[in-house]
Design a protein around this nucleic acid. Structure first.
Lengths: 224, 224
DNA sequence: CATAATTGCTACCCTGCAGTATAAACAAAG
DNA sequence: CTTTGTTTATACTGCAGGGTAGCAATTATG
């Protein structure tokens, strides 16, 4: 009865339980699904109340499950936090990398980068906000890994700015420092955007694009 | 002996304990001083470990004092948090207001605003960061008051952008939305700057000025 | 239908910490 | 040198919540 809250019970995925291979794989998928659901609900609470103020009992209750259930899928509360933070930065990093793989001038690429990353941040605000806000609650080792991902993000962004600078498209005195401002502007979206608020997601994304373009735009005028 | 950690004991301020008036005033000053010291140490811990993860015992220990000491100057832990958050936003707001009181064109004023606010934010990073990060830990009523101050900040900034737009100095499509980006850029400093890190406070301030100027700069070229 | 394996729950433990009742130390006043 | 008020510490309480031991229910297998 309780497992109902985890929605889609085995039925959906249960097609060919013939071979052991298939059965084992199915089991893995179900486990992965349960982990995802736990993470999702946890991220809601961490986002709304903060990590320390959130109790695993409340997360379990939301899932119509008990605390030991969570502990059979996650080692402890800290592991949940780490996975949420990891998701937050990894999604942004992946969006950046995919955007960078699109061919085009630096200006075109930058526009795509900002648009896609901004959209990802809005769509995954909970994860990104927790990652930005709860760094201090991570174990030192976990915090280090998160910082590495963030650093990869900033570095790739800096490389793009460098490229635009070399081609004369951008006027940036110091690409790696400017990258941090751009990345901050994107992060700010997560901290500030409110669904159903004064401004729509699209408006915010368009604004972000415009702001970043101005930040790198040569004094002479427009580009790209 | 223990009160030593509160440094400057009465001696400093003790000049004319003649009249009762003076004595009472002195007492008030000492009380205010103790409150300030408690707040200062608390802000260190809240900044470094987060609000919930900080124990008042540890704050007391840092002051070479005991927990009931703190409770005789603050009602509870939440009051401490509120005062820290209040300090964080109020300092920024005051810096903004003072900068706005300097006569000049919109461009000149904006430059002064960004410079002063950025400096205040760096100098009071602990307070500002806690205010940005711990909103969810505040009582609803306290959170509301903090948001009001932030809103005042954004509104005054928007008015300046509006003024610059009217005079043709700035190219901003939507002043109140742009104000939020600018205010976000400033906030970002608190979250990202690290004393003794890769870049100096002055570099960061100069960068912030340059970024904001570009964000509002007309397509045609420079201004101010 | 019996046996084994898996999965989840009930019922705890125990620590850490916000907050307090009360006593001691000290200072001020007479 | 007592008396009175103030300031700070000692020594607690209460409980919330992370984490776990062990049991029950369910499912798979022969």
């Amino acid at each position: 009865m309780h497992t109902l809250a985890l929605a889609t019970d085995s039925a959906d995925l249960m097609d060919k339980p013939k071979k052991k291979r298939a059965a084992a794989q199915l089991k893995d998928e179900i486990t992965a699904y349960k982990r995802r659901r736990i993470l999702e609900e946890a991220s809601h609470f961490f986002f709304a109340n903060g990590y320390e103020a959130t109790t695993l009992d409340s997360v379990a209750e939301q899932l119509n499950v008990t605390k030991p259930f969570i502990y059979s899928y996650y080692k402890n509360k800290g592991e949940l936090l780490y996975e949420i933070c990891q998701t937050g930065i990894q999604l942004s990093l992946t969006a950046l990398e995919e955007a960078l793989s699109v061919e085009g001038t630096a200006s075109e690429q930058l526009k795509i980068v900002v648009e896609r990353v901004a959209r990802i941040i809005i769509a995954n605000q909970r994860y990104v906000t927790v990652y930005l806000r709860e760094e201090k609650s991570l174990l030192p080792e976990d915090a280090r890994r998160i910082r590495e991902l963030r650093h990869a993000f900033d570095t790739k962004l800096a490389a793009l700015l460098e490229k635009g600078k070399a081609s004369g498209e951008f006027d940036v005195a110091h690409p790696s420092r400017t990258a941090i401002w751009v990345s901050g502007l994107l992060s700010w979206i997560a901290l500030w955007y409110h669904e159903g608020g004064r401004w729509s997601a699209t408006e915010v994304v368009m604004d972000a694009i415009a702001m970043v373009q101005k930040m790198v735009q040569p004094a002479g005028g427009k580009h790209g």
